[in-house]
Design a protein around this nucleic acid. Sequence first.
DNA 1: GGAAGGATGGCGATATCAAC
DNA 2: GTTGATATCGCCATCCTTCC
Length: 345
Amino acid sequence: PDGDPLVENTRKADWIKREQKVTVMISNPPDRERAEGEGGWVEKGREGGDKAALLDDFRLGGRNATNENKLKNLYVYFWRWAAFKVFEQHRSESDRGIVAFISTAGFLSGPGFQGMRKYLRETCSEGWIIDLSPEGIQPPMRTRLFEGVQQPLAIAVFVRSGADNELARIRYAALDGSTREEKYAQFEALGPDSDQWRSVRQSAHAPFTPAAQGAWDTYPAMNDLLPWTVPGMLPKRTWVYSPDSDTLRSRWRRLTAETDIAEKRALFRETQSRTVDRQVNPLPGSGQRRRSMLEAGSECPEPVPFAFRPFDRQWIIPDNRVLDRCSPQLWENRAEGQIHIVEQH
DNA sequence: GGAAGGATGGCGATATCAAC
DNA sequence: GTTGATATCGCCATCCTTCC
């Protein structure tokens, strides 16, 4: 109701968020992936408005669009809103501002965030990246600044000090202490003029990670030497591979002998793309007809050896009905004497 | 004194989404 | 139907406390 102090405060806060010029924004934005629909007008644009959604400025579209579902994350919505509020909304009054966020570090180098990096480089004059988790995903407990957070984290400070056409000059430093306390000590010692700062690559889409020292960048990339790559198989069920092939045959017999349909579905481990009754095209080169698991007999397709992991050779059931992603190109190029190189990601 | 069960951390696996 | 990346998910060994 009117007059309620909480309501009044909320109105004032909304007014500041909507109308007031904000020069400095400091925050630890919430993080949640798959947050489509929770970004309000930042994500979807205003209803009936003719302007595109703010988030579109973080998108490259085209071939990169397949990676850009990663932008549907609460922390990205907050980044985009903060950048609008500080750098864009009141540009005619003042062209200066600072956004300083601690958030997950995915935007530093993820391919889906190339458009976000381009925006920040083009909008800002300078940037500082403090990588809090150079260990990568799931750092050891003792080095985590927040114990419950398995994701890599980073502090990013971006400054716009006026209109210019130069890309932002960005520096990078990592806190690589082996304990939380060491990291805090490194952080305390870090200042704007410290000599730990390393320059970040200059091009608009490049990761916010340091440029290579020495000759590394002059070496040929893996894709230059081996231009043909395909993803490996992703069965989405663990029973289809095993270190020995007899285990696979007995599992197959157990599954095909099951007459209770609910039990059969459970044993099969159904997913969105593979169910016991779905008709599935055969693997390339197998010459079988399109059929479902319900028609399968007790005879297991002859297991074939495959590279489960580097240096870990196992056996797999070569049947597309049990493989969510069989990687058809891989099967098409399966031939006697063919050599495959496994690239770890 | 030993069984039971919760809490924790290590480790590898997998569900999920939209674009294509 | 296929694809890439992830403040996840799930299993399991270990440690610790509680209970009988």
